[in-house]
Amino acid sequence: MSINELIPMLGSVLELSSIYSIVTLGLVFSFRMVGFADLTIESSFTTGAAIYAVLITQTSISPLIALTLAGLAGSVAGVCTALLHVKGHISRLLSGIIMMTILYSVNLQIMGKGNLQLVNTVTVFDAIPVNVRPFCMVLFALLIYAVSFLLLKTHFGYLLRTCGENPSVVEKLGYRAGGFVILGLVISNALTSLSGAVAAQYYGYSDVGMGTGLIVAVFAALILGESVCSPKSIFRLLAAAFIGSILYRLAFEIGLRMNIHPWNLRIAVGLLLAVALVLKQAINRKHSKLFVGVGGI
């Protein structure tokens, strides 16, 4: 690969991993903090894209407001999933699956069709020169990571973590664990749909199948990151999520350039996740400090 090919590749790696790193951050909130492996994100990612696309093509709302509304839509999805589990006593797995299924149709209704093009629309990227774009997007992602870090260091953040690691303690502190499950899923789905809305602007369209395979990709990114940067503290956990997103995207782009047949892409992703898990467990055994958050995987 020549330098002329490498630089754009690195640029697109940085851009796409910045976008998807927000979803990985959402996974940290839903899975590592609250212990909820939430499949809703496969659809709420698309919900963000769909809401953004519809608002931007059919109204004159500014991109920033449209982005905010897309994020809010995700949080509504998160509330629904959480309520299914907390009030309906449906298992976490099924709650996520049910919402993922329902949202798929909702997304179609929002867009009115399967694919909505964003032609001649204003995007948040317009003001940024193309060669600086990767760095701006990395900065944007890091800003969101920084806010999340501060949030996790507050009393609220510790309670969120307690809810996943040891729910009985939450009750002994006078709170109801269900409330934190709801808030955890609100945050994670809001981040996911925000990311979806940015992705829509990046790709130039919103498609109902955009989120398919997202949960595996995002898990792979998180595990990959954690095997490289063991999450012994909240800072390292977030660093792992970000680094893992970049590594995953890098592996993906290299895979694409290695002429892997598109049919075999899922084999590659699956193998990557398996390798990441094996690596992480091998490294795990060497550590004498407990990892932050809900473990198991």
Partner: peptide, 23 residues
Amino acid sequence: TVASMTIEENLRLYAFRRGSPAL
């Protein structure tokens, strides 16, 4: 107690009273 939190963090978690700002 929460396993991944330190002794100090566990104690501060319990010491926090409801009604104080959560953030």
